[in-house]
Simulated scan of single mutants.
Amino acid sequence: MKKLMYISLIAGVACMVQACSGNKDSKASADSANTAKADTAKKDSSASAVDKDDAKFAVAAANGGMAEVELGTLAQQKAANQKVKDFGGMMVSDHSKANEEMKALAKSKGIILPATIDSDEQKVKDNLSSKSGADFDKAYVDNMIEDHKNDIKEFEDATKNLKDPDLKAFAVKTLPTLKMHLDAIQKIHDSMK
């Protein structure tokens, strides 16, 4: 009964955090709710929750994956270079698949994921939306190179540091795809010179 009360309290807090934020920054709301959940689990040994750093990785991965899909869709619509359009299509396909895996994994672990991309990713999307043609292609390619370098570092760290074996397995499984994406976008970048 006590465990059910804590779970209900956590769910209520999470809903209030989401509602109060007005989805202004869904990633921050998810991080906050997961931290509260982990802190409650520490205080009550009968409650269980994923380590807050593991939950933070899941939230960041979900946020980044959603952004890749949205930016990939934008590339399919706005890119002048067919290789950039095709890369955007690959982002939509590969990251949609990874996003679905992360959603299922998070649900099974009780991790709250963001519903929308965070404000930083939204700024990138807004900036890219204002561009067209070769200007769009260059900005998108540059962003994808930088973004995938950062993602690879985060996922490499996750493969070493995550405590949850299922989240760690997700990072291990996803890392080669991220490296393949970086290699592909680097080749597109080099061909555009």
Rank of each mutant, 00 (worst) to 15 (best):
V17Q: 02
A28Y: 12
A58D: 01
G110C: 03
K131H: 02
I188S: 07
D151R: 08
L178G: 09
M5T: 14
K103F: 07
S8E: 15
N99Q: 07
K193L: 05
D54S: 05
S108F: 00
G65W: 07
D190Q: 10
I7K: 15
N23R: 13
A75H: 00
P176S: 05
D137Q: 11
E100T: 06
K193S: 09
D25P: 11
G88V: 07
T177G: 13
I185F: 08
I111M: 00
Q186C: 11
T40A: 14
I152L: 02
L71M: 05
T177R: 15
S191V: 04
A184S: 15
L175W: 01
M102N: 01
A47G: 14
A11V: 13
L178M: 06
Q77C: 07
M144H: 08
T174Y: 11
K173A: 12
K78S: 02
V59W: 06
A80S: 13
D151M: 09
K131Y: 05
F155M: 12
A55P: 12
T116C: 04
H95G: 04
K153E: 15
K42D: 12
L4T: 15
F155T: 03
D157H: 06
K149V: 08
D54W: 09
D51F: 05
T177D: 12
H181V: 10
P176I: 05
K107V: 10
E100H: 04
Q122N: 11
T174H: 07
G65N: 05
S129W: 10
A61I: 05
I10A: 09
A79Y: 00
S29C: 04
D86P: 03
Y140G: 00
A184D: 03
V172W: 10
D94T: 09
S46M: 03
S8M: 10
N63R: 11
A58P: 03
D39M: 11
S96R: 00
G64L: 05
D118F: 09
S93Y: 01
D147E: 13
K163E: 02
T174I: 12
K160I: 04
D126P: 01
A80H: 03
G88W: 01
N99G: 08
L167C: 03
K52Y: 15
K103V: 12
G88S: 10
L9V: 12
N143Y: 06
I7Q: 13
P165V: 09
M180H: 04
G72T: 00
P176V: 08
M90Y: 11
K2P: 10
L4P: 04
M16D: 13
K27W: 07
D94K: 00
D164H: 06
M1Q: 12
S93G: 05
D147W: 02
M1S: 14
M90C: 14
A75Q: 04
D126G: 09
N34G: 13
D39R: 10
D147S: 14
D183F: 04
A79I: 01
V69R: 12
T73Y: 01
Q82A: 13
D53I: 00
Y6M: 15
A60L: 06
E100L: 05
A41C: 03
N34C: 13
M5H: 15
T73D: 09
G72S: 02
D86S: 13
K179G: 03
K3I: 10
A30Y: 03
L178A: 04
L71D: 15
T177L: 14
H95M: 09
N161H: 01
F87S: 01
A104L: 11
H189R: 13
T35H: 11
M144T: 06
M102G: 04
Q77W: 00
A98H: 07
F170A: 14
S93F: 12
S29D: 09
